[in-house]
Simulated scan of single mutants.
Amino acid sequence: MFNLESIVRPNVLKMKPYSSARDDFQGIANIFLDANENSLGSLAGENYNRYPDPHQKKLKKLISEIKGVKPEQVFLGNGSDEAIDLLLRAFCQPGKDALLSLPPTYGMYEVSANLNEVRIDTVKLTADFQIPVREVLQTVRPETKLIFVCSPNNPTGNSIEAEAIETLLKEFNGLVVLDEAYIDFADTPSWTTRLDEFPNLVVLQTFSKAWGMAGLRLGMAFASKEIIALLDKIKPPYNINEATQELALQALDKTEVLKDMVEEITQERELLMMSLPGLNAVELVYPSDANFILVKVTDAAAVYKHLLSKGIVVRNRSGLPGCEECIRISVGTLEENQELLKALAEF
């Protein structure tokens, strides 16, 4: 039986969160002299002289309605990276506890672990980039508090089999953190639909990919209200600025535009995946459920340099296990993709 308190850092359980001026005030007022703000106004425009809502209530309410979860199951961070960092701070004691990562995968899990002095245990994905579940469970130690699973996975692009994730959730007495940054481009449903079924599930999503708002740095975490309360307890008081909250609220009213963009990107992805195998430089195109494609080429360093000479930047992922001589190509516009194919054909 999963027991949340048994894996939380003792000092986090005991600590009192910072109480901001906006936390202390309840009700309606016309004059605010409580937060040491500049009452004359702001050089950046209206309303920016006041601190933003520290709990992002309007934004969480709208997100919860779109995602089909409760507002208290939503955490908003300065990108998903903030949620990753706070999960380690909340559950892993420095120098004692561990997380488990499944390379090749997103590099910030390791960076956050190193920053927080958390041990990283790794189990490589299989040749087809799936989870070797039994090996993972055998690697888990009493100090293992978190398992990070990226699905669709970055940089490989494939979705992780649901059965494997479900087995981890049922048999691991820690948090399974499922990073769904690219879920909007996949046919599989989000695991947010199963939050109430698994109390040890945390789902990460972002406004950076399908929503096209990478410059705003707004990430989401979905989990039980108890886990979200812990993240809210230790986050900086005003971690989501007013401009980001306003722009995100505007974007959430345009879900039809989101659907159109996702459809266009996935169509362009399929066209690229059909065209790339016919090029001499390309040896293998891996399946993708994301807005990028992992491609094995004859010489990744040379191909990267050649494309750069044409003004095209891709990502050389050869240094990651299982990705030898691979480049990662983000799906661009129709015109950008045609330029890419033309440049690759000239290699």
Rank of each mutant, 00 (worst) to 15 (best):
G95D: 11
G95E: 11
D97T: 00
D97A: 00
L100W: 00
L102G: 02
T105R: 06
Y106I: 09
Y106D: 14
G107W: 10
M108L: 09
Y109L: 04
E110C: 00
V111D: 07
V111L: 04
S112D: 02
A113C: 00
N116T: 00
N116F: 03
N116S: 07
V118I: 03
V118Y: 02
V118F: 01
R119H: 14
D121L: 14
T122N: 07
V123I: 13
V123T: 06
K124R: 11
L125K: 15
L125C: 03
T126V: 07
T126H: 08
T126F: 07
D128Q: 02
D128N: 12
D128R: 07
D128A: 05
F129H: 04
F129K: 02
F129I: 01
Q130Y: 00
V133C: 10
V133F: 05
R134M: 13
R134I: 10
R134Y: 13
E135S: 06
V136Q: 02
L137N: 00
Q138I: 09
T139P: 11
R141L: 14
R141T: 09
R141P: 03
E143I: 00
E143R: 07
E143L: 07
T144S: 13
K145V: 00
K145Q: 04
L146R: 02
I147W: 01
F148C: 10
F148A: 14
V149H: 04
C150E: 15
C150A: 15
S151F: 06
P152A: 02
N154C: 12
T156H: 04
T156C: 06
G157L: 05
G157A: 05
G157M: 09
G157Y: 03
